[in-house]
Amino acid sequence: MKINTIKDLLNADIICCEDGLEHHVYSACGSDMMSDVLAYVKDQAVLMTGLVNSQVIRTAEMMDMKCIVFVRSKLPTAEMIELAKDSGIVLLATSKRMYEACGILYSNGLVGNRARNV
């Protein structure tokens, strides 16, 4: 799924790194606990979260993620946007809640887990 499709499906606003909208992603995850993201995420390229602090961007950077979607109308700070720009991570923001946002993407084919080396 293109990141652009995620934006459309979630009726999300683009915060930064519009250039990355054409990237394809194959799986996603949703969590407000960065500890869990670091522990359980494998190849998921999209993080959905309602947490707003710099560690969200750094966690995504560590996991080689391509896109972060802020749910529940949360908005990243200016510092977070700068960090995301440095790493080329697309930031999106949607008013949808986590459960609904995840459900929409999942039912449109963006799975939660993808076997490695595929």
Binding site: S35, D36, A39, L51, Q55
Partner: peptide, 17 residues
């Protein structure tokens, strides 16, 4: 710390993993 997204007790196990 938990409200900042950390402190789930996964740090050290993750480092080992």
């Amino acid at each position: 710390i938990r409200s900042l997204g950390f402190g789930a007790g996964m740090g050290l196990p993750n480092m080992k993993r």
